[in-house]
Structures are given as structure tokens and as C-alpha cells.
Design a binder for these strands. Sequence first.
DNA 1: TTGTAGGCGTTATCAC
DNA 2: GTGATAACGCCTACAA
Lengths: 361, 361
Amino acid sequence: MAQGPTITTIAERAGVSIASVSRVLNGLPTRQETVRKVMAAAEELGYVRNAVARSLKSRRTHQVAFAMADVGNPAYLAMLREIQPVLKAAGYRLVLHSTGAVVADEIDVLHSLGERYVDGMIMVPLRVTEAHLQMLGAARAPVVVIGSVPEGTPVDNVRADSRTGVRLAVDHLHALGRCRIALVNGPTDTVPGAARGAAYREALAELGLPYDEELVEIGDFYRAEGGRAVAALLNRVSDVDALMCANDLIALGALDVLRAAGKRVPEDVAVVGMDDTDLAAASWPSLTSVSLGSAERGRVAAELLLDRLQDGEHEPRVVTVPPRLVVRASTTPEPPAVRDVTGAAGQAATQSRSTEGGGTS
Amino acid sequence: MAQGPTITTIAERAGVSIASVSRVLNGLPTRQETVRKVMAAAEELGYVRNAVARSLKSRRTHQVAFAMADVGNPAYLAMLREIQPVLKAAGYRLVLHSTGAVVADEIDVLHSLGERYVDGMIMVPLRVTEAHLQMLGAARAPVVVIGSVPEGTPVDNVRADSRTGVRLAVDHLHALGRCRIALVNGPTDTVPGAARGAAYREALAELGLPYDEELVEIGDFYRAEGGRAVAALLNRVSDVDALMCANDLIALGALDVLRAAGKRVPEDVAVVGMDDTDLAAASWPSLTSVSLGSAERGRVAAELLLDRLQDGEHEPRVVTVPPRLVVRASTTPEPPAVRDVTGAAGQAATQSRSTEGGGTS
DNA sequence: TTGTAGGCGTTATCAC
DNA sequence: GTGATAACGCCTACAA
């Protein structure tokens, strides 16, 4: 781990100036003889260009940050899986930020954008506060936000359509003859929690079903918490025949609790999750879930950012990714060979790439 | 997105030299009056220090790279989830590299270490070639390898114990009265594939069971491939009563195929996976799996790297993480409340943190 | 074609 | 205490 060689070292070794070395290294027109000498010296010394020095000069790091609440969340991982190859193909490295659910940390990450160690950022805020908007307005590098921001925020924005998503699910349950459809939600002060709560209410109204507060339970977006919430719900209301869960983890918790309680799924209680993560297809029974296009949102975000990194100046763009209902065993006893129902008529085919494996020694 | 202010801008604004600005910013002893002026100017200008320039000077980027074959692989993700918080707590950012299964890409990543855009690296090579060893020997920054490298390789090394892991699984199956235990493996020219193949053979020998080539099927480490391999196997051999799968994805594929073939799991065929990913607990039936301590290996690797980044020079260290058999429904009809069997007597409690959730709008 | 020199934004070593 | 000034490693006018 000795001190690595620099262009100066090479210059001395080759008996030329550092300017010539730089030229050769960058493929600028140079005499053959010089090229040979420099290349030889570089080779012998095992020279590798210093990316930091180069960035200082060029003002480009070829790095992009991805900031989300939690690396362990399968929905974010689905985004990550799409973002990574897109950026890599364009010659960018991906820097990960896991902020926890702490708003201050998100602001901090946004602040650190100013340190210029990345050329841009993709961010999935859990809550969007005034402080967020202020930082976004003052950002010194392009930012793409996954999740809705108010009109006029000067960043590109990739949205899911929770509203339609929840409606697809509720319609599906209703069509199966379910009338006591409960909502198991996460905290309502989060962006997704709020959206899904409102959408649930709307969907019921559209179907002419009454909104019953008894049928709404707030927990958190985790499996254990979801289970607890469902237990509380069942304890309170006895005639629930369907659970609309605000994400897949909650839904898995629901399955755990229902099984323990001796309820059959879907005969006694049908269950729908959200995000359509890998866990949905693997669960027991397999889980009907609303895909909000995590993978596609990630891919689109990466593409928007790359575009912005190249061109620079357009108006802020907003892209909304349509949801899809993926029907599995938790709502229909005989899973109909994975039927898909698309939310927006004939929209972009959200190709959720199959999870790949690989051993580890 | 105007040109950001630098210490020079601040110096002018505050009417002092850049040296003083730097001192104030770094908390070095300075007169109160000067401190005030500089802070005020910095505040007004919204100054954020340039990480690149700072790195050039300090020769530290406060970044660490994590390189693996595929961001989509749950085993690597388990590592990632542990690595990230450890590094973050120590003030490091994580740069992700997904190399695909391509050896050349791994070498390339190792090469890029020389660009000094990170202070160190954690790598999980799928194969370990001569080229790998050469690059590792010449590395200009500390590297920790997850997966076995030959004695004498000058890097810290965190290993799983496939051998014991496979033995735990095979013993378990044998104890359940299974005698025709098949192996569904991934490519045998990979580190894990080779290790698991050899371990299977050993485990049978120890139990006095015959090694039957008919019972070994090679596919790949993915769900679909695993399914195909199992189909081929069942087609060839009719009396298989247990499947030892080289990872969880293969095992899930096996469950798919067995179900389609009308075989009951575990009554007709017992199934064991490896890596104990989130998918194992969520699957249908839930999957008995050998945990090779992905999470712990990640955490240990991060700690070794941090230690090396601070101190610098010790001898290369080797840490082996013990496997655990996690028994679930795919081998015992009545899952015994998730019984754990530890591979090494009373070893470090591999605390596999429960996957956390979170909604996304 | 090639070399000299200045600058990217910081930090750190000097004299003052 | 503070202010010039020299690095850090690279790129690039501009001159030769």
C-alpha cells in the first residue's frame, strides 16, 4: 500500500512533462514516441488515475446518491435494483443513504448534496416537510424525488398512484362479495399513510359502502406491527371479511395472526397487500397485492436524473406510474394463474424483473 | 444552481484571509471576533464545504465500496443491511457495485480501487481467480473479502462454514428418516457451488449413506432454474424423499415444482434451503433453511474494514461465522415454534434483524 | 508537438 | 492570532 504513482512520477520516469503525460492519458494528439514512453512508464508503475483530483478539476464526480428511509425495506430495494444498472450503464457510481425514519437525517442528506461529492440525487422522503421543500429549492445539484411533492417544487418528481391502487384492491374485494372491508394502515402522518387512508375512504364511497371508523386500524409498516394491529381489529370487530393492508409486510403480519386465530384465508377473510414485493409471491397463502410500480419508479427516476445531468435545464417533470393489481391466493382460493389488472388503460408495461439469486460461500 | 461559495468568497466577505476561514471552519483556536465574522459570512452565503477538495488534501474520502454480484440477491442484501449502518455510524458513505457474475467486472472494480474514490472496500467474489489474487495483493487500499481466499492472501477474510451448514441440514433430514437425499446445486465452478457440493458428499459419508450421482442435479442459483433442475431430477429418480437445495431461491423453485407435481411437502419430499433469507419464512410452506450468517458476515466485514481504516497494520485476519439450521414447515409438518440449532457450540448469537418495512407513496 | 504555469477548493506550514 | 503561500493530483490555456 505504498504511495501510488502520479502523473509527475510518470513524467520523470518517461523524461517528459506532466502535460504530455496528461495528454497521452487522455488520448490527445501526441507524437508516437512520446505516447510509447508514457504508456510504458505508466504500465511499469501501475499507474491509476486519481478520481478525486480529476473531480476537483472537472467538477464532476460521476457519483449519484440514492436516499431512502431504510435499506431493509423491500420496496426501496426494488427501486435500488432498477436504479443501479441504469446508473452503472451511464458510468455513474451509486452512493447509498439510509436515513431512518428521521426527518432531520433526510434534511441532512439534502444538505450534504452541497458538498459536491455526488453529481445528483434520487430521494424517497417518508414525509415532506417545509424544511424539505426549502432544501429542494436551494439544491445545488439535480434532485429527483420519488413520492409526491407540491406543484412548483423545482425538482423532477416520480409518483405512484395510491388512489387508483387502493381502488383496484377495494373493487376487487367488493366484486368477490366482501362488504366489511377493513383498512390496516401505517402512520397517517407519512406520505403513503395519508394517501392510502384517503384513497380507502374514497373507494368505499364510490362503491356506495359506508365508511366505518371501527374498520380502520393504524399500526406501522412492519410485519410484527401489522400483526398487532390486525389482532386489535379482530378483537374489536367480529364480522370483518376482508383486509386492505397498506403494505405487504402488514399483510404478512395479518396472515400470521389470522392463521393463529384459526381464520381461513381467503374463505373467512380475504387479504390484500401493497407494493407487490418478492415476499407476496412467496408467502403462504400467496398474497394478492397492489403493485405501485416500485421497480418502474426507480428506473424512471434514474432516467430522469441522467437526463438532467446531461442536458441540465428543462422544466421540472412529473411522471406518474400506474398501479397494477396482482391477484393471488389470499383473495381467490384458486389463484387464476396470476391474473393482472392494469390500473391505467394500456399503460407502460411495468416489467418487474424477477429476483435473481446467487450463492455465497 | 449557481456557482457555490468557497472559502475565498467567505474570506472576502468577512475581510479576513482564507487561512482564517479554514481555521474557524475547523474549530482551531481563533479570536472571537474573527470567528463571529467568518460564521456570519458563511451563514449568509449558505456555504457548504467541498468534499472533493477536502479529500484531495486529506487523502481520505470517507467512502467505502461494497461489491457483490447482484443487488437483487437477498443474501447480499442481508449483508448490505448490516454493513450500511455500521459504516454510517463511523461517518462513512457506502458506494455500491453490482458486478454481475462477470469475473472481468470484479477485477475492474478492484482496479478502480486505485482511483482512490473510496478509502476501502468490501467484496463478495463469486469466483476467486488468479487475477483476483493478484489484484488483491497489489491493492492500494484495504479490502475485506467475504468468502474464502487462500491462506496468505493479504486481506481480511470473512468466511461462512458451508461444510458444517450442509452437514446440519443433511443430519436433520436423516434424523427425520430420509435416506434418498438429493442435492440441487448451482454451478460448481463458483465458490459456493463447489463448497456445497463437496460438503454434501462428506455429510453423506459421515452418516454412512451412499453417494449416488443420480441424486445430484446442477442448475443455477435462481428460482426458475432451481425449479427446472428439480423437475429434471424427479423425472429421473422416483424415490427422492428429501431435497437439499444450495440456496433459498432454488428451494422455492423446488416447492413450486413439487406442488405442481402433486407431491406433499414435507410428507412426500422434505425440502431444505440455504441462506435463510426473508423469503424462507414467508414461503408456503415455510422453508427450513441453513443460515450461513449473511447478516453477521456483513457486519463483521464492516467492522474489520473500519478497524483496518483506523489502525492500518495488523496481520490479515480470518473470521469464520458459524451456520445455524432454522427448522420450519418444509421438513416438519408441525413447525416446532421455530427451533434453532446452532452449528458451533454456544457461538456468537447471529442476530438476524427483522426486516423493517415502510410505505412509499 | 511539447513544456510552463495557473487553477480547482482545502488544509497546513510558515513567518509576522 | 493571522496572513501569505505551498501543496494535494490533475487538466488546460498559452507560449515556445
